[in-house]
Design a protein around this nucleic acid. Sequence first.
DNA 1: GTTAGAAACAATCCT
DNA 2: TGTTTCTAAC
Length: 747
Amino acid sequence: MYDKLNSMQREAVFCTEGPLLILAGAGSGKTRVLTHRAVYLIEEKGVNPYNIMAITFTNKAAGEMRERIDRLVGYGSKDIWVSTFHSTCVRILRRYIERLDYDNNFTIYDADDQKTVMKEVCKRLQIDTKLYKEKSFLGVISSAKDELISPEEFTRQAAGDFAKERQAAVYREYQAALRKNNALDFDDLIVKTVELFQNDAQVLDSYQERFRYIMVDEYQDTNTAQFQLIKLLAGKYQNLCVVGDDDQSIYKFRGANIKNILNFEEVYPDARVIKLEQNYRSTKNILNAANMVIANNVGRKSKELWTDNDEGDKIDFQQFDSGSEEAVFIVKDIRNKVREGTCQYGDCAILYRTNAQSRLFEERFVVSGIPYRIVGGVNFYARKEIKDLLAYLKTIDNGRDDLAVRRIINVPKRGIGATTLGRVQEYASEMDMSFYNALKMAEDIPTIKKAGVKIKPFVNFIQTMRSKVEFLSVSQILQEVIEQTGYVAELEAEDTEESRARIENIDELISKAAAYDESNEMPTLSGFLEEVALVADIDNLQEGSDYVVLMTLHSAKGLEFPNVYLAGMEDGMFPSYMTIMSDDPMDIEEERRLCYVGITRAMKNLTITCARQRMVRGETQYNKVSRFVKEIPGNLLGGAVRQQKQEEAGSDEPKKPFRLAGSKVNPIFNTRNVYQNKPYQNTSFASSSTSRISLEYTKGDRVKHNKFGEGTVTQIVEGGRDYEVTVEFDRVGTKKMFASFAKLKKV
DNA sequence: GTTAGAAACAATCCT
DNA sequence: TGTTTCTAAC
């Protein structure tokens, strides 16, 4: 079995004791190494499968790994703990979180729930959410949690800084609200587990004993909390094998700390390092292109991927006039390839930077009747009808989750409105009880008169359901809820396209519940809710089905396709504005790594496309070819460059309302153009609706910003196409901004 | 208390 | 452009 591995892979498999870092380039067979390693541990080293743990980031990756181990090993593989970070933590917390003063049947809040909680928190603290967005507080809190900074610690660090002190207050209040609802958010799952391990030596020891051999996939994506978690678990036996690729680190925004992989050898001085540099996935052309792009990054671990595969076709590069032409081309191209018999729909993937780009493709696929599937966007479990029904299940399962109760108290309409709810809430807070318990006593609440009559049937219903939980399966409970509330009946009466789609979703939820009942030995409501809370869209991607998949570059990590389309390769789209504008040069590097990830998804054919003109949020943008495309040497690119067409378009295009400031070309955009003999002229990427940039204010003037209020201009720097204005605001301090975005008014 | 239509607003990527 | 929030009228 091990003969099929190359020497480096074999070395990694055989190195079982002590810390090991495997630097595995894209397509170098790292899952193969991990699975073989598990098998080797069991069969050759006599390790009990029960003592092995493999951790991944998505359920899909976990499922794949489990499947592959199953295939390799005769028996016992079931006992290996193969799971995601988040499910692992939930499993541990379900058992022990009461030691941190939570109920073991806690609920897990998604982004929507978090926002609802945050809204209330802001209201309570009298924070104007026009000035300070809920989302920004949630972002601050999430980053703090990623770094294992507690509300108390945050408060300490905030001392003296007014804005930070406010964030600290919000953080404290938010955390208190979660605890009161017996709920954890996604970040808490990790944080609380670390907390548990740090506070309870006994629990930690029992897991250290259990997980004597630990393997972590995609290690470059771990954040500080996850790093700490692993460090604690591996603390006793130190048999820790991490696999990752610093060139594929693309999750800084959710706290991933690239230092975890770069400094692995410092944290674990005895660590062995093995590099896997042979790529088995892509053609030479594709791999070379990827290498050339990523070579522009500094500060990476040195490694060069190579392959024995054929040279393959050139990379097809096409530029179009608009986003819709781009979509037409790609869909046609797929159809042609399938007709020719070169590939199947299931071999094709369209990758883009933002979810919004999927719409144009979807339109074309619908028209052409080609089967497709979009990964991402609105999560199935985030849809209104699904969340409503799940809120019923949550209420039945855990009466302490105020959010769930409030969501459904008036769904379907029971004639219970904001006023009544406010009064119930008031009473609940006064008596320090949960919202649901206050509802139970509605008739005794003095401020509530007639409304009590409307509340009673709801409470009765929930109580009845609770008494039935023991002898009904999850799907039966769900169906009874649907029946009794008349939820589907109402939708049927509506009889619109939308309502029919909702019913379809509900049917799917029922079958998911039924599937859960069947696949579990001890199905419980909490168990189902937990499973549901942790699925990502990508987890549902079925291998072997014949449809084109559309997804973001982020979702595509870890996947491979014979035929890949990288769409929307334009400066401003990819790399995104945010990173182009950022003053941190590392941001563009992360974007470049994302491009590297995209290119290396392709096995045989890679097509790169872009559009000159694109509608973004109702405004037309004029974008240039992505700088990343220009980093690919011309000899690797093929395809009609459509030079003539571009020139025609140049004269057809309406004159841009403004020209580059001082006719200077921004050095960023003056990259050498490798595949064209003529540089772009006259293109700018700001929207056409912005009129020629001339500022109505100068240094020293008083200006007004519609969010930050009034301030004084302290500096104006001329950029290529815009002005970077520095303003000292009276209320929020000094900010740097681009004039065309800031919309500053002189006062 | 409910609803429809208007206005405001949004600025990536995700477990 | 698409979605969420606000407002006014029923």
